[in-house]
Deep mutational scan, measured.
Amino acid sequence: MDETGKELVLALYDYQEKSPREVTMKKGDILTLLNSTNKDWWKVEVKITVNGKTYERQGAVPAAYVKKL
């Protein structure tokens, strides 16, 4: 869990989004888990830093590609 009490997951593999509802992640990324009720796809929040600014993006990733921490 992070400092706000939200559950975290670890990306076990790289994943490139294939639709606007998904998010890209790299192996080793730590993501915030938002919903894991679907056994195949979990909704997560990814933090992306671009030019020193951090953005948050929500989307789905394959459940088999992440592990709860």
Rank of each mutant, 00 (worst) to 15 (best):
D2H: 14
E3R: 12
E3A: 13
E3K: 13
T4I: 12
T4D: 12
T4S: 13
G5F: 12
G5W: 11
K6L: 12
K6Y: 13
E7H: 12
E7W: 12
E7Q: 14
L8S: 07
L8H: 09
L8A: 05
L8Y: 15
V9Y: 05
L10T: 06
A11N: 01
A11S: 05
L12N: 01
L12E: 03
L12P: 00
L12F: 02
Y13A: 11
D14H: 04
D14C: 05
Y15R: 00
Y15P: 02
Y15H: 02
Y15E: 02
Q16D: 13
Q16N: 12
E17S: 15
E17Q: 12
E17T: 07
K18F: 05
K18C: 10
K18R: 14
S19Y: 04
S19Q: 06
S19R: 06
S19H: 09
R21Y: 14
R21Q: 14
R21K: 12
R21D: 15
E22D: 04
E22P: 04
V23Q: 01
M25C: 05
M25W: 02
D29I: 03
D29H: 04
D29P: 02
D29S: 06
I30E: 02
L31Q: 00
L31T: 01
L31Y: 08
T32N: 06
L33H: 00
L34P: 00
L34M: 06
L34C: 07
N35V: 06
N35I: 07
N35A: 10
S36D: 15
S36E: 15
S36L: 04
N38F: 05
K39A: 13
K39Q: 10
K39C: 12
K39S: 12
D40T: 12
D40S: 10
W41N: 01
W41L: 03
W42H: 01
K43V: 15
V44T: 00
V44F: 01
E45F: 05
V46K: 12
V46E: 01
V46P: 00
V46G: 04
K47T: 14
K47M: 10
K47N: 08
K47A: 09
I48F: 11
T49P: 03
T49G: 05
T49I: 13
T49N: 09
V50Y: 08
V50K: 10
V50M: 11
N51R: 07
N51G: 11
G52T: 03
G52Q: 05
G52C: 08
K53A: 10
K53L: 13
T54M: 09
T54R: 06
T54E: 10
Y55V: 13
Y55Q: 09
Y55I: 14
E56S: 15
Q58A: 11
G59M: 08
V61Q: 00
A63W: 03
A64I: 09
Y65M: 14
Y65D: 05
Y65L: 15
V66S: 00
V66C: 13
K68N: 06
K68Y: 09
K68P: 08
L69V: 09
